[in-house]
Amino acid sequence: MQTQRGLWLFLVPSGLVISLVLLYPLGYAIYLSFFNYYLGGQPPTFIGFGNYVALFGDERFWGSIGKTVLIVAGAVSLEFVLGLAVAFGLYKLTFGVKPLNLLMFLPHIVTPVVAALFLRWIFTGRWGLLDAIIMSFNIFPPDWLGTPGWARFTVIVADAWQFTPFMILVLYAGLNTVDNSQIESAQMDGAGNWTILTRIMLPAIKPLILFVLAIRIMDAFRFFDQIYVLTAGGPGTATETLTMYTYALAFRLLEIGKASALGVLTLLLSALTIGLVIAVLYRRDKGAF
């Protein structure tokens, strides 16, 4: 028991920094979500759950939830499937893994503010690289950023471009930890790659899968820069996500109270999603997590 108490001391430095620097702003933001607070004017007035009630009656709120869930689900699953495929490919590859690994990781280190601009130069109509390549075959491609369906697709691809490398790196690491003897014995039994991957390797790295999915889901819910630069929520409102709405409330309308309430709801929604992922991943063995 003495050991257990001693462990708390290890939390002190980190806890101190977090509570000094992060807890106040976070707490203050949550506190403000119960106030009518217009940044330009009078001091905040307490309105209880008024902001939340207003949001629940707001068609824009529900619309942006739908679009957010769609974009998050699309982006994270694309990243996971692609990341896993590439990681497994790397795992199987017997040569050239190191340089490939490094090169593949590069999109992840591009500064996010500019990453979106890089992609804009690819996807913009006419003078964008993608258009130019397709047009050289005399095909007129769709407007990647200007038609609702394609704009959502492009935004998902943009997120995947930056974060699939993260998935690859972590999943590749995970695959390498899987016990070789298990794989070999399965191969003896004549199991193919697919069986080995889904029956042996994936179950073995389940905690890791949860880790990457959770991290990505959280971040994708806050996904902002790329949408802001690529589509600015458009065309129409096709890519208007929760964070875009939060931004509009906080910085354009200066309604800090309502924006904070939306932030809290975003937090709850992503917690819920992660809870759902845990429930699905661990549906057979509940106690394990």
Binding site: R126, G128, D143, G146
Partner: peptide
């Protein structure tokens, strides 16, 4: 209008 008008600002 030019393609991409929906998201074009002055620069584009």
């Amino acid at each position: 209008a030019q393609r991409g008008y929906a998201t074009a600002a002055n620069d584009e």
